[in-house]
């Protein structure tokens, strides 16, 4: 996959920021030099999810307005070698930055880093345009639910008209039990509707609440299912072929029996 990736969704609250934090941390754990750019000016959150909120001095708008040098605004995560955050401004609005400025900024970052992950705000207005401006590929995050899938479709259309062709889908918060009962869109249903390639499926996992409470991405936690899923997505971003976790298969007696006979 291309190395400058925007993480977007259209709808809010589906896990863009959590995914950005986990994928960035995962890439850094794999030895890559990664910068995470929070483009949600006015509503920044990537800093708290990563546990770096107390270390912000300068932000994205300061860099664009040349109040500081780019290097001064980058926060190095001391826990993971090679992981950096460029935080969004909190007291400004999205109009403070233009898509052209973002493009220049991202090109600058590409010289220094192996991967540039851009966390996109919800919506399709200026914030989206800023986030997409410098990106060469996109990961669209959706939850298996009508409003989120609908918005994802809109975003996929907008990405292609912005010239981004490498678009992958990340299905987040899948509940295998509900899929089995027929009360949640299955992975294949969502893929059929949206018609894009899958980069991964992250199951609903209570550990995510814990990890954002603590500011420690779940990807580093060996006991977290979501963490494992994010580690797999990280590998796929780096070009490894990893099978999608078998989440929808039942674990009960009858499912096992069915599996036995369907072989």
């Amino acid at each position: 996959m291309e190395k400058t990736i925007v993480i977007t969704s259209g709808k809010g609250g589906v896990g863009k920021t959590t995914s950005t934090a986990n994928l960035g941390t995962g890439l850094a754990m794999a030895g890559k030099k990664v910068v995470l750019v929070d483009t949600d000016i006015g509503l920044r959150n990537l800093d708290v999810v990563l546990g770096l909120e107390n270390r912000i001095v300068y932000d994205l708008v300061d860099v664009v307005e040349e109040t500081c040098k780019l290097k001064q605004a980058l926060i190095r995560d001391k826990r993971y070698e090679g992981l950096y955050l460029l935080p969004a401004a909190q007291t400004r609005n999205k109009m403070a930055v233009s898509p052209e400025q973002m493009k220049t900024l991202v090109e600058e970052l590409e010289k220094e880093f192996d991967y540039v992950l851009i966390d996109c705000p919800a919506g399709i207005e200026r914030g989206f345009k800023n986030a997409v401006a410098g990106a060469r590929a996109a990961i669209v995050v959706t939850v298996p639910e009508v409003s989120s899938v609908r918005d994802a479709d809109r975003i996929i259309g907008l990405l292609s008209s912005s010239g981004i062709e490498d678009v992958r889908l990340l299905i987040n918060r899948l509940r295998p039990d509900l899929v089995r009962k027929g009360d949640m869109l299955a992975i294949d249903d969502t893929l059929e509707i949206l018609g894009v390639d899958l980069i991964g499926v992250v199951p609903e996992d209570e550990m995510i609440f814990r990890s954002s409470n603590l500011g420690e991405p779940a990807v580093a936690d060996d006991n977290s299912m979501a963490g494992k899923a994010y580690r797999n997505v990280t590998k796929r971003i780096m070009g490894e072929e990893v099978p999608i976790m078998d989440l929808e298969q039942g674990t009960g007696f009858f499912s096992k029996l069915k599996k036995l006979f369907s072989r």
Partner: peptide, 9 residues
């Protein structure tokens, strides 16, 4: 309900 969701979408 997932089938209904799929059709509606």
């Amino acid at each position: 309900s997932s089938q209904v969701a799929k059709d509606r979408l």
